[in-house]
């Protein structure tokens, strides 16, 4: 597994900045692409749910639906934390995405934009770790880049209808 150094990864996951390894995420001022900037999704288009996705992308979304919030029985997708998923199948060119460097023929590169409900979330590392692990375990995925994003700000409006139902069953007062 390797990270694509051209995009930001969660700095918590590899804060080393290893001078011996210029490809390490967190190493000094590496080459960032424009891809990550100026592409803030419209809040009205969120949450991203993977509806209508097919093939490997559908498998990735299924894996994401399998990751629950640490405190409530609701997946990170239904909670509205996932803002974007890009699956770059590289070699066969079928879903080349947004200037990402291709992953070669061996498998797809998946980039996930994800937020958290709360900036001080103590489960940040746990949750991002679980998401990465879940997606990395999908057959056909070669590497995963998870980026924490903060715009637009998460709100209850981002919870899916199915998610709101789950929260009500859990005993929370939701709308």
């Amino acid at each position: 597994m390797s990270y694509d150094p051209s995009v930001e990864a969660d700095p918590d996951l590899d804060p080393a900045g290893d001078p011996e390894n210029p490809n390490a995420v967190g190493s000094a001022a590496c080459s960032y692409t424009e891809y990550e900037y100026g592409s803030i999704p419209d809040a009205a288009d969120l949450p991203a749910t993977g509806e209508g996705s097919e093939g490997l992308a559908a498998d990735v979304w299924n894996a994401l639906y399998g990751v629950d919030d640490p405190e409530m029985p609701i997946s990170v997708v239904d909670l509205g934390l996932i803002y974007r998923v890009d699956v770059d199948e590289g070699g066969d060119g079928s879903e080349a995405g947004d200037g990402m460097i291709g992953a070669g023929d061996e498998g797809a590169s998946v980039t996930i934009d994800m937020t958290l409900t709360y900036s001080g979330c103590p489960a940040r590392d746990m949750l991002t770790g679980e998401v990465e692990e879940a997606v990395a375990s999908v057959e056909g995925v070669e590497d995963v880049t998870l980026r924490l994003v903060w715009s637009p700000e998460w709100s209850l409006d981002m919870v899916t209808e199915a998610g709101k139902e789950r929260l009500r069953e859990f005993g929370l007062s939701v709308e």
Binding site: P11, A16, G17, G26, A28, A29, Y118, S119, G120, L148
Partner: peptide
């Protein structure tokens, strides 16, 4: 502390560790 972390993250962009 959460807000400090959001700002320190941006310093980590330049290669600094926690």
């Amino acid at each position: 502390l959460g807000h400090a972390r959001l700002w320190y993250d941006l310093l980590e962009d330049f290669g600094y560790s926690e």
